[in-house]
């Protein structure tokens, strides 16, 4: 069978909502797109451990500490599910990590913003995880089997994350004046970057075409972003905080919110390395990797010796 014929057959399977499995025939571009998207997703989970991990040792109660620790651990676990799913495409975890360190693979830009106060633990769980979940729920129907299965597992486990974040923000919004101020400040800082997490507008999203055609992506950036805004605004109002967008208003005809312009210059600047934490996040990851080298080698050496005996 020629390449073109295979591609036609492949598209027929996609159109019939067949799941593609690791050993199936797939166009090289499809495979590459998946590796890029899935590894970015995996790296995001792992780099995402840093801003929150940063606060575990300072959590204000034993309960909060326990929950945050469990949550960050879940993120490590989700990173692993996604690395494993990516490995089914014929790439090793060593290679994936190397690409991250070389700056060839990306992670979600939101983690290049600093977590400055305890309220940020609320904002991250509520808004950042909230945005991620909106995206992930949609990805449960993605065409690549291992990716879809990882998403199902992740969505199931993440359901507590958003509640954890909202609980923190809600109790601070109902707390002392200083706490209220911290809660509003965290919302102000994380609102717009959370909206940016869905990616550029559909009209400016060059790779979306193929991703939609291959059903890797099931819904567009703008559709998902709107869904997130629509469900989040009432959550903001419920606890007496204000969405930092003066143009936000309810559109009766569309039964949805209209919102202000996103600062795409900032979005691109942060993606290209201009965020306050880009350098720090990558350095941290590299350092842990370098510090761990002798441990990994010890484990490998021990296994070699055991195999010989």
């Amino acid at each position: 069978m020629g390449a073109e014929e295979l591609n036609v057959l492949f598209q027929e399977r996609i159109d019939a909502n067949d799941k593609i499995e690791p050993r199936d025939n797939m166009p090289e571009e499809y495979r590459k797109h998946l590796i890029r998207q899935m590894s970015q997703h995996a790296h995001s989970e792992v780099i995402g451990m840093q801003p929150e991990g940063n606060w575990i040792t300072r959590a204000p109660s034993l309960r909060a500490k326990k929950i945050l620790l469990a949550k960050v651990q879940d993120e490590a676990g989700h990173g692993l599910y996604l690395y494993s799913a990516t490995e089914t495409l014929g790439i090793t975890r060593d290679e994936l990590i190397e690409k991250l360190h070389q700056g060839k693979a990306k992670y979600a830009s939101i983690f290049n913003y600093p977590a400055l106060t305890w309220a940020d633990m609320g904002a991250i769980g509520w808004l950042v995880d909230g945005a991620a979940i909106t995206n992930q729920v949609s990805l449960q129907k993605t065409s690549y089997g291992p990716y879809a299965r990882a998403m199902v597992k992740i969505c199931k486990e993440e359901s507590f994350h958003q509640r954890q974040g909202y609980e923190i923000i809600a109790s601070m919004a109902a707390g002392t004046d200083e706490q209220k101020e911290m809660a509003q400040d965290a919302l102000n800082r994380f609102w717009w970057p959370s909206l940016m997490m869905f990616g550029p507008h559909d009209s400016d999203s060059p790779r979306s075409g193929n991703a939609m055609k291959w059903k890797i992506k099931r819904e567009s950036n703008d559709v998902l972003r709107k869904r997130f805004i629509d469900k989040t605004v009432s959550q903001v109002e419920l606890i007496g905080l204000t969405v930092p967008d003066k143009d936000l208003k309810w559109n009766e005809k569309e039964q949805s919110y209209d919102f202000g312009a996103i600062d795409w210059d900032e979005f691109w600047a942060v993606i290209k390395g201009g965020g306050p934490c880009n350098i720090k996040r990558l350095k941290h990851h590299k350092k842990a990797h370098t510090d761990g080298e002798w441990v990994r080698k010890a484990a490998a050496a021990y296994a070699q010796k055991q195999a010989k005996n």
Binding site: V46, M49, Q50, G53, I56, T57, K65, L69, V72, Q73, A76, G77, G79, L80, Y83, H284, H285, K287, A288, D291, G292, E293, V295, R296
Partner: peptide, 18 residues
Amino acid sequence: SELCSNGPFLEEDIAQIN
């Protein structure tokens, strides 16, 4: 908990957090 995100590889990170 200080070890979080500092493990020699991800599996061990998870183990230490546990």
